[in-house]
Design a protein around this nucleic acid. Sequence first.
DNA 1: ATTAATTACTAAATCGATTTAGCTAAAATA
DNA 2: TATTTTAGCTAAATCGATTTAGTAATTAAT
Lengths: 342, 342
Amino acid sequence: MKKTSLNDIAQHLGVSKTLVSFVLNGRGKEFRISDEICKKVMDAAKEMNYQPNRIAQGLRTGKTNTIGLIIADIANPFFGKLGREIEQEAASNGYSVIFCSSDENPEKSKQQISMLQQNQVDGYIISPPMNSESQIRALSKGKTPFVLIDRYFPEIESNYIVVDNFDAAYQATNHLLKLGRKKIANITVNLDLVNMKARTEGYQKALIDFGLEVDKNLVKVLPFSHENNDITRAIIELVGCKDDLKADAILFSTSKLGLNGIECISALGLKIPDDIAVVSFDNADAYKICVSPVTVVAQPLQEIGKKAVNILLDKINSPDDIPKFQQYTLKTEFIVRKSCGS
Amino acid sequence: MKKTSLNDIAQHLGVSKTLVSFVLNGRGKEFRISDEICKKVMDAAKEMNYQPNRIAQGLRTGKTNTIGLIIADIANPFFGKLGREIEQEAASNGYSVIFCSSDENPEKSKQQISMLQQNQVDGYIISPPMNSESQIRALSKGKTPFVLIDRYFPEIESNYIVVDNFDAAYQATNHLLKLGRKKIANITVNLDLVNMKARTEGYQKALIDFGLEVDKNLVKVLPFSHENNDITRAIIELVGCKDDLKADAILFSTSKLGLNGIECISALGLKIPDDIAVVSFDNADAYKICVSPVTVVAQPLQEIGKKAVNILLDKINSPDDIPKFQQYTLKTEFIVRKSCGS
DNA sequence: ATTAATTACTAAATCGATTTAGCTAAAATA
DNA sequence: TATTTTAGCTAAATCGATTTAGTAATTAAT
């Protein structure tokens, strides 16, 4: 029971495959195929369960109706939710998506871009890891469009959709300051990513505007693939001895850090928010059921996902337009819960 | 700057594309291409940044090196982690994966299977929703192999990898019983899925073996796409009035239920484990930082993912073997934390 | 010296669609 | 009546690979 091809239908009806193709593409009228034959073809297609071979179509037309997605890690709920939005928007436009997790590793992302290229994807949505500038630059030279998400490279012109990280961190820090916290720490990863850099800058600016000095010892930068040990160590360093805490609040720059961090804080016997207040980027489900539910900076994941796909499809469908880059910086939502006290 | 094809290399060197194809497939020796020419071809390929067109290869060879994955929801961390394992194992075997979230909706999964079919995937890994038997049966008739995960249909012969849900639920319930809980409830979804059914059956068997009666009022079955309201209502029904609790423990059959459930329990002012003990399937990150960290049934996601891919690739690579179905029922891990008291 | 074998390569078919160019018969127009 | 138009369809090229079946030139075997 092998698959039915255009040719099979053509032979079955004793007509040319050209005709069958016309009809099945809904262009029967345009090519003056008689209604009678049109009907026969469509009936036969249904009856023989014809499924067009998209691979063959892709080869002929140069369009695969597939987009490639590269994110850090699909198992991370932040990217999981984002991926879901992208998948959904893509599907509703007739596109499939190939998912790739780069682990923030530029070797991997290079490899993945190459694979997607070979698969002739019509476009890419990429959350580019550190040190992948050359890959993105190479993509720019080609004619397949791409949209960057979550971060971008200021020195490379491109389409991107990000969030106002500076402002978000400023707001979050300010919230802590207004509640009387004075020794606010920041735990973050890889400062070389613009998004992370902006978060720490926003945090620092808020301190300065409040008339406080920025204490470099209160900023802890962990490697991306941190272990819980790393966080525990960072927190112990921040906290010092229990009776004379060096920090009275922590701004976590990602939910992965925050989740692990809160685990460590509990393990150390510290209470949130009494001993230490906590704010985190990204509205992880876990934050709702924490010992004290965590105040967070929530990103508009649905908007990011939809916009990324729509911009990409625009570019795909009008490849000859002068490449005017679409760049969006969306606002975040600050959700106050109990982790900062009141 | 358009892409380089085999032909481009051939013309550039003044040789046939047959030769170029042989060389680049590493079959130069086999076809007695002189070392000198081999080298020239490989150098040219590198220099011209040749990327084989996998679409064209796919059309000719009938193999796309792509597998289709259908799960309930990639944004759900359980499936996110599973998807990640599958992606990883596939990638290390040179396969790409197209992700599809079915939302447990058979209409969607039907549509997705059809799309994957059109994309000529070499195989499927599917977590089939309720009422999708006909789709799976249709797949069986075709020659593209597939592996079911998380659940399967007993009445359809197929490859599958699941977990011993009955045993896991039995263990979990027994754990509660041994800690003195007598009024143990079960909150679950869609009993028509074998995995969910087995969980409730294991729960009931444990009660019976312990000499207790099964109280049907203590089993709450929610629709898959439940709202928090549904859970709140279920929990209120289970709990009754605070001073005379109808239930003193809950076994949640999924982490989505558990997470929402715990949120509701907190909102109702009940304390875990004092007022009510909790055990849940699936080791969500959130469970580690709960008010009282949650005792869980953890599934071997890496093993499931790897096995699914490996079985699938086996079937893909030896399509002529008599179809002997591979069926695995893996053991879960029971992780005791604080949510059941002691 | 003739035939057979080996070496080093190439032409052309093929996969399953799309699409351009063109063909035939009937109808319309001059 | 001769010519053009139109309706209704088809042949063949094409996309970029793989693969079968050869070919021509050289070397080896008889």
